[in-house]
Design a protein around this nucleic acid. Structure first.
Length: 495
RNA sequence: GGCAUCGUGGCCGAGUGGCUAGGCACAGCUCUGCAAAAGCUUGUACAGCGGUUCGAAUCCGCUCGAUGCCUCCA
């Protein structure tokens, strides 16, 4: 039997603002779409957190035995930097700056994006479609929207008619906005616009002669509007209505709102059953921003080359840190927070290594089955990874107790414990035991340390504590910690 | 200015009408040649002010503060 049949998941649906029981359209199958990055610069850390959150969700679904089609797009069409008609295309701008082809910009930052996510141990999505690869699909949707009377053409551009749409449908239902309020609050328009109303948004933009990224269309040469690609690609690969759509909080309005409008205007159906939004990441309590310098790139964290943190942190530690917060909460990244997580991470990873060496007894002093269900309960409750981790630390404590002979575990329970820990730590949370794990270091180094441990134990036996302490202290200075236990001396590498 | 989310012990971060997650730090104890590691014990916190209630950190109102969106943004 598949695990999902015995676990009931609840998710926080942004559309209703409530936690709801999750029921996929087709039993055992899940269609999930997540808005991907615009590849015109290096991925920033906040992006990584969002994608990591959905990676964890993807992993949990897979763990439960669901067949998941996870689509995450790459936005490689430039779009415009602002709403004004003379706005500049982000990718074209970067290309001009670096004197290269726009597609070289796209290629470079797509590679950076993939590399970074791989370091964070994100699984690749099932499909990673690009906007430029789906121009035809986008044009088709525009035709439908026009045919249905929800869009109009002006001078080679096509705009979505929000006011007309709102007469029969509801614009703003996702973000809790009322069109009347929006109209009342609209700031005076900059320049004269082609749009009938400021709330309207572009489905297709006419390309000015200097605009490099352009495609032919029934309305002339141009490029697709900001929100259309997601509608086109999600519809193509997941259908007119699918299970989950995710993305960062900041996309809720207008991006996701427009997606809903586009779908309802073209095929008449609401596109998504469950909208999931991941919350922001701040740095030292403030919004990350390149202009104020309150910003850090993933690579700068890994190398330690930055002015914000006191040391380097491995991708696994950063991932663990992020998993210690719920995906819907704002999370603040700081050196002290990272430091605390790193210690906890090492404790968890070390306990994992001890599991296979644990002594077994006839009976267990720890209810492994009940504990296991608590782990599932945590994840079933809107993917509550912080609670899951608190249970994992419960297991850590028990593992250490058993190791020291202060608690016992049966053969069967040990197997359950081992499988459950591996499933949740590695498969679901995606946390790897890199950096700090002895098994990752070279055999040679292990051998050398074992020799030193032997020498130290000889010195201790001879009460030559000056020598034994010297070995211990000099090793710790190198990041090698010796741990004296009942069953001899172990060590760990804490980078 | 409008909309939204939030304000929890030294720090990070769950929870959410009564039964006090967890991590890190701190203190005491056990262990140890001394430490470290590990284990045990202790911390009674929920921005402020009102209100609802037998009972609120959890519900309501106001105030203050933070963050996000309102223009591309995860």
């Amino acid at each position: 039997m598949q695990l999902y049949k015995s676990q009931q998941i609840k998710v926080h649906n942004s559309l209703t603002g409530k936690k709801e029981a999750f029921k996929p359209i087709n039993e055992g199958h899940i269609g999930m779409y997540v808005c991907g990055p615009t590849v015109y610069s290096n991925v920033h850390l906040g992006n990584c957190r969002t994608f990591m959150s959905f990676d964890m969700i993807f992993r949990y679904f897979k763990h439960l035995g669901f067949k998941v089609r996870y689509v995450r797009n790459i936005t490689d069409a430039g779009h415009l930097e602002n709403d004004a008609d003379e706005g500049e295309d982000k990718i074209a701008k970067k290309a001009k700056l670096e004197q290269i082809e726009p597609m070289e910009v796209v290629q470079r930052y797509t590679v950076d994006f993939h590399n970074t996510l791989q370091k964070f141990n994100l699984l690749p999505p099932s499909i990673e479609p690009t906007a430029t690869g789906h121009i035809i699909e986008q044009i088709e949707i525009i035709k439908e929207i026009i045919a249905n009377g929800f869009a109009y053409e002006v001078n080679g551009s096509v705009y979505f008619d929000v006011i007309t749409f709102n007469e029969s449908k509801e614009y703003g239902k996702l973000s809790g906005r009322k069109l009347e309020d929006m109209i009342a609050n609209t700031r005076e328009l900059t320049a004269q616009s082609e749009k009938r109303n400021p709330q309207d948004f572009a489905l297709w933009k006419k390309a000015e002669p200097q605009h490099i990224m352009r495609w032919p269309s029934p309305w002339g040469d141009g490029f697709p509007g900001w929100h259309l690609e997601c509608t086109a690609m999600s519809t193509k690969y997941l259908g007119e209505t699918f299970d989950i759509h995710g993305g960062g909080m900041d996309l809720k309005f207008p991006h996701h709102e427009c997606e809903i409008a586009q779908s309802e205007a073209s095929c008449g159906k609401s596109p998504v059953n469950y909208w999931l939004h991941a919350n922001m990441l701040t740095l030292n309590g403030k919004k990350m921003s390149k202009s104020t310098g309150n910003n850090i790139y993933p690579s700068e964290i890994f190398t330690g080359e930055n002015d914000i943190l006191t040391k380097a942190y491995s991708p696994s530690v950063v991932r663990f840190f992020m998993m210690q917060a719920h995906y819907t909460s704002i999370l603040d990244l700081s050196d002290t927070a990272l430091l605390a997580s790193e210690k906890g991470y090492f404790r968890l990873v070390e306990a994992m290594e001890h599991i296979s060496k644990l002594p077994v007894s006839k009976a267990s002093t720890f209810d492994v089955k009940a504990w296991q269900q608590l782990c599932y309960d945590a994840m079933n409750d809107d993917f509550n990874t912080p609670i899951l981790i608190s249970h994992l630390f419960d297991a850590v404590k028990n593992i250490n107790l058993i190791k020291e002979g202060k608690a016992t575990i049966s053969d069967a329970d040990l197997l359950v414990l081992q499988n459950t820990m591996t499933s949740f730590v590695h498969d679901v949370l995606g946390i790897e035991s890199q950096a700090g794990a002895t098994e990752d270091s070279s055999q040679t180094l292990n051998g050398v340390i074992e020799v030193l441990i032997g020498l130290r134990n000889e010195a201790r036996a001879n009460k030559d504590f000056a020598t034994s302490d010297k070995i211990r202290d000099e090793l710790i200075a190198l990041g090698i910690q010796l741990k004296d236990g009942k069953d001899g001396t172990n060590f760990s590498l804490n980078q």
